[in-house]
Write a protein that binds this DNA or RNA. Structure first.
Lengths: 237, 237
DNA sequence: TCAGGAAAGATTGCATACGATTTTTGCGAG
DNA sequence: CTCGCAAAAATCGTATGCAATCTTTCCTGA
């Protein structure tokens, strides 16, 4: 897949940092799997696509590299990350450690406004599950991640929120790579159960449900190495 | 304080990424408080100090900005971060969430070689506590952080390890800003207790000790806003 | 004396240029 | 036809230049 096959909406937010806007667009594309793992992201090409110089494109790629969504090799360039099974396990181990705590924190800070936001989120999530087609499936993965990001924002810790943004993005990559079935509908109901616990201020229950939810997501992955690890690495695919 | 008042060892590691080497040096300087919070880090000055162009200096500053050690404002430049009390609380809340889990993971992976490394680390830590003078005190803060980083590396999760690197660095800043006494000697004995639990494979105890340890560190801070928050912000100090 | 504002200076944001390194292409030998 | 190697093309790393923005200085008028 060539990055040039894709078109990106123009970056109108010229006032704000352009590199950041490009990073956001690329991140969405990576998380949605419009850009496949291993895809080369050359500075020049990114620059042309977004109509900026290589300087700005490079800054955006550097940001993605920090988030672990892009792997850069000196003098070779940037590539969409291709997480190994081990890396995938570490992503989920990190989430198991952090997200139950986030759920507890969020349970203590829920307001009616938050509940409304969660309901809207879950509605949208449900819509994408009902729809068919690859586009809906991409949106579904994204919406599922948004639930966790919303929870992190309610928890009110900006540092943990940023960690979660990284973990959710990397999880999406992992699910795209190693996901087996549509566990998502199951995940949707788990999200609803978590929200219910949050609404009732039952932080212990929310935390426990979250832990199981993460376990279920990981359990749906097939993390066996396929066709020899070295080969895949060598082929960058 | 002017950044030019400091001198930095030359970056000899020319083969590797120069921006990264500069970032490491600057990070050490920030964590050691050789660069005070609020200090301006102008691209040009950094470039001259390290004998690189602004391009490279800028990349290093961008990295530090991602780690939260530097705050950048558009068209104004980069400044050594000046964490607010609220930010400080979030740093420690994050550590309370993450580090007990790291301790558990590490307890299950301790090898004799790890024990040796920890003992060497604690020895060094003790030496700095015995010494007097501001230089030893800086080294002491750094060594204390290194204990936690060593633990994170033993835990074997690269993602969490990177999170901890960020949290420890930011903690050092916070302690330098809001620290009250030399709780460090107390912290040193707590480190030793944690190591003992790790050696015995007593993960529950290591985890609990770690939690208390973090609580103790935070309890030693004076997080009341001083002389009005707005004023300090406005003065960037 | 002090406030207001314009001009000078400094610094950043970004584009571009050039050498260095890597990758691809092309060609000849086996 | 394939392999190996050299030249060409592409791409990266970095320095530098210019316009835009911010900061400081200094002058003027009250």
């Amino acid at each position: 897949m060539n990055i040039a096959d894709q078109t990106f909406p123009a970056v109108d937010n010229a006032n704000e940092d352009r590199a950041q806007a490009i990073r956001d667009q690329l991140r969405d594309a990576i998380v949605d799997r419009r850009l496949a793992p291993g895809t080369k992201l050359s500075e020049g090409e990114v620059g042309i696509l977004f109509d900026v110089s290589r300087t700005v494109a490079r800054a955006a790629l550097q940001m993605l590299s920090f988030e672990g969504l892009v792997r850069t090799e000196r003098n070779r360039g940037a590539f969409v990350a291709n997480p190994s099974p081990e890396e995938a396990r570490q992503v989920f181990a990190s989430r198991r450690l952090i997200e139950p705590g986030i759920a507890i924190a969020a349970a203590g800070r829920m307001t009616p406004a938050h509940v409304v936001a969660f309901k809207a989120q879950l509605d949208e999530e449900g819509r994408f599950i009902a729809e068919r087609g690859p586009s809906a499936r991409r949106s579904e993965i994204k919406a599922s991640g948004d639930f966790h990001l919303l929870l992190a924002s309610v928890a009110g810790n900006l540092i943990l929120q940023r960690f979660m943004e990284e973990l959710v993005a990397r999880s999406s990559l992992v699910i795209a790579l190693y996901g087996r079935s549509g566990v998502s509908s199951c995940g949707h109901s788990e999200h609803m159960n978590i929200l219910e616990a949050l609404e009732n201020g039952n932080s212990e229950r929310a935390s426990a449900l979250m832990l199981h939810h993460i376990d279920h997501i990981e359990a749906d992955l097939d993390l066996r190495v396929r066709s020899g690890p070295a080969l895949r690495q060598a082929l960058e695919f």
